[in-house]
Nucleic acid binder design. Structure first.
Lengths: 222, 222
DNA sequence: ATCATTCCTGACCGAATGGTCAAGATGCTT
DNA sequence: AAGCATCTTGACCATTCGGTCAGGAATGAT
């Protein structure tokens, strides 16, 4: 009865529906593309439906509303993000952790460029739907890792740089290649980024950032 | 007679109009905000007009069309960008140049956050209006500076890192604080970024990036 | 065969969209 | 005071927007 509900699907999840599953997948994929390209207000259900190969009514049948569809995409992307670098401890090797962070973030952006751009567009617009997440879960995520970085600095394993700014630096640098792909391709005169390109960029970022905050590239002792 | 023209203003520029100048300034400022927040398609002339304190018809009288207004904003932002770091040579000091680059880019993003976000939103959406600029002027700009970085590396003044990736790294890191302000503020629990914050971030980025690509912080000899 | 549930969709709605236009207000120049 | 260019704006238009709804098609269990 509240406004955000999906009208049908009373059984909660899945149902029997191979049909439902397939259509929802198709709709979510199309919606991710369109929202990423035009932002929330700029995206139209008609376009999404067209790209999903379904009539507009069918999209609304499955997703309930434009708003509902959008938050569902955001939640999917948040889940992907939260799975990142979930278990690090003070006793891990800074070089390994930072490299893994850069690499997995890079791959996340590459594997889900539309989701990445969708996220970026949402934040660009002031994060109207994500305020709660930013000030809650994500802040905790960042602060927890920042605390570990800080301890590393105390132990002399890296320079005493502000860990939060460091996380933002890594975030922005990796995000850039997904979000601003058009710019990267335009300036470097490429049609697309190859696996080799991505590997080269990852290596570059790892090298510069690790060296930049004084992390010794590999620990030789135990 | 072609469709993008501003119908009035036959005298080309400025005219006598203090009125015109004031109104155009008001409209451009409002439009920059609204386009930045919602993207091209998500922005509405009604909202822009309201924020400019003018009736919608008046906005169209001055700007001709939504499209025309938008490209005018983009051009203004490109001009600001082009004025950046316009004269560097191989004989300059890498540390000074890189620091100046980071600092002025940071200030540009801070001074014109809406313009910065507008640019970001345009590129995020695939840069439909900016393809030409990216593959032309901006590419030349980047390649010219990349050539200088490369020569510095040959002279042993910095590590032989890919200069184009380096420029993107600086671009993305500095851009981040304007474009993703909502994220930065949410995670760090701030209301806004103070001048001191910006100074701290600039110092952090300068330090990490310079050290990261092996630029000695200051040349002590001549 | 019956029946309930799920799936599907064209027709339709009020609101908002970008843009046009005609008619008048304002102000500068002579 | 006449004349002209600039400015201002409400009324209006075709199109598109997100969303509703009624009714029919599939589907599966009994």
């Amino acid at each position: 009865m509240s406004q955000g509900d999906v009208p049908a699907n009373p059984r909660g999840e899945g149902g029997n529906g191979a049909t439902r599953e397939r259509n929802e997948r198709e709709i979510l994929a199309a919606a991710e593309r369109v929202f990423a390209a035009h932002g929330y207000r700029g995206a139209s259900l008609a376009t999404i439906a067209e790209q999903a190969g379904l009539p507009k009514s069918n999209v609304l049948y499955y997703m309930g509303s434009k708003r509902g569809l959008y938050v569902r995409l955001l939640e999917r992307m948040m889940a992907r993000w939260n799975a990142l670098l979930d278990d690090i401890s003070v006793d891990d090797d800074p070089a390994e952790v930072l490299e893994a962070f850069i690499r997995s973030k890079m791959q996340l952006s590459r594997r889900h460029p539309e989701g990445s751009r969708l996220f970026a567009a949402e934040i660009l617009g002031g994060a109207p739907f994500l305020q709660e997440y930013l000030r809650g879960d994500l802040r905790d995520w960042v602060q927890a890792r920042a605390a570990i970085f800080r301890q590393w600095a105390e132990r002399g394993l890296m320079d005493p740089v502000d860990p939060v700014w460091l996380i933002f630096l890594i975030w922005s640098a990796t995000q850039h290649y997904a979000d601003f792909e058009a710019q990267v391709l335009g300036i470097t005169d490429r049609e697309s980024l190859s696996d080799a390109d991505v590997e080269a960029i990852t290596a570059f970022l790892t090298r510069v950032i690790l060296k930049g905050c004084g992390v010794t590239s590999r620990p030789q002792g135990a």
